[in-house]
Computed example of a mutant assay.
Amino acid sequence: MPRDLRNSDEQLWGNSLSAVNEPRPGRPPLIGVDRVEQVIVDTLESTPKNATHWSRAKMAERSGLSRSTVGRIWKAFGLKPHLEEGFKLSNDPLFTEKVYDIVGLYLNPPESAVVLSVDEKSQVQALARSQPAFPLMPGVPERRTHDYVRHGTTSLFAAMNVADGTVISSVHRKHRSVEFKKFLTKIDKNVPEHLDVHVVCDNYSTHKHPTVKAWLEKHPRFHMHFTPTYSSWINQVERLFAEVTRDLLQRSDHRNVQSLERDLRDWVKAWNENPKPFIWTKTAEDILDSIARYLKRINGSGH
């Protein structure tokens, strides 16, 4: 370890040791600073033989401590070796400019304009479970089979008004430039003529196809704002898709694509009866500072 943990924040260290050695039934073992430090060093800077990460059992064998003691040490210092999160940093050369542009639309939208967060939730599957679900009962959760039969796919096109949360949507069996142009036409018909339309969307080739560009040239009130690569988190409609997945798709049971599309339309209709805008609070500076801190942390971790 590049630094001695005992020379770090003494209060945190003391509190963490107290958590490790907190009173328990029977005679509590007293664990010295050196042994706690060694567990942390081994967890952060090594891997067990023939394994990619430490388990409590493996660390207990390595350290000579009990599994429960290892668990308390990890909990006290916020270590979770069994968890892994994926990430993909943007390599967009215009990342900063695009963040300022899109966040500026969220926090300070232009006058006489509507800002729409747009994307397609593609390849939504109509899945039919092989057996009926067992319903929820007191003390027993709803139970569903893990196997299912696929009955085709569809795509949900959505444009969410970031100001009021209302959604313009369409469902199409494919998500080519043809369908995207049709969706832009639907947006054009639904947004009052006196308003400019600012569209936030990703860099998917469909959104930049020559047919789409030709359509945009004929509709000058439309202004496209593309998110940085690998940065779907900045597109608010992704939050909406997460709601659709949790409310409808996660436990769906559809015998055909038509019933799936009907349920998607009904879900959006119900959403629009009580729309919930997602309040954006972070400034562009907040985001860039957060990414800078993250990069500094992972660059200093030896990875």
Rank of each mutant, 00 (worst) to 15 (best):
Q125F: 01
R173K: 11
L195K: 02
R255K: 14
S130L: 15
L79C: 04
L295H: 07
A133F: 06
H207P: 11
A128Y: 12
P93D: 05
I187M: 08
N161I: 00
E97Q: 15
W13S: 00
R6V: 08
R251E: 15
N108T: 10
M59Q: 11
D42N: 13
G152R: 00
E120S: 03
G14T: 07
K182C: 08
L105W: 08
K218W: 05
D286G: 04
E45C: 15
V212S: 05
S205I: 10
F134N: 13
V103I: 14
Q131W: 11
H146S: 13
L249F: 05
E238C: 02
A292C: 04
G165W: 03
V33Q: 15
Q258C: 07
S112L: 07
N235C: 03
L240S: 09
Q258N: 12
H172C: 04
E85S: 14
A292R: 09
H175D: 07
H223L: 08
V118G: 05
P135K: 05
S169Y: 08
W54G: 06
R297A: 15
P23C: 10
N7E: 15
T43G: 02
S8G: 14
S130A: 10
V257F: 04
W233Q: 09
T69E: 01
H175G: 06
E285I: 10
H151N: 06
V149Y: 10
P2M: 10
A292P: 03
L107S: 02
R24W: 04
V36A: 06
S177I: 06
R297D: 14
D196L: 06
K186Q: 12
K121M: 00
S18H: 11
K49V: 14
T229M: 02
A159K: 02
L195S: 00
R255H: 15
E37A: 15
V114E: 07
V268N: 06
R35I: 13
P28A: 08
R27F: 07
H175E: 07
L156D: 06
A128C: 10
D247V: 04
P2T: 12
H207S: 06
K282A: 11
L79Q: 03
H225Q: 02
Q250C: 12
E45Q: 13
Y230I: 03
R173L: 08
D164E: 01
D164H: 00
Q236C: 04
V140S: 06
W215S: 05
L89S: 03
P29K: 15
W280G: 03
V167I: 14
G32C: 09
A158C: 01
N256S: 04
I287F: 05
T229P: 04
K208T: 12
R246Y: 10
L184D: 01
E217V: 07
H207F: 11
L136G: 00
K186P: 03
V118W: 05
H223P: 09
L105R: 09
H175N: 13
F278W: 13
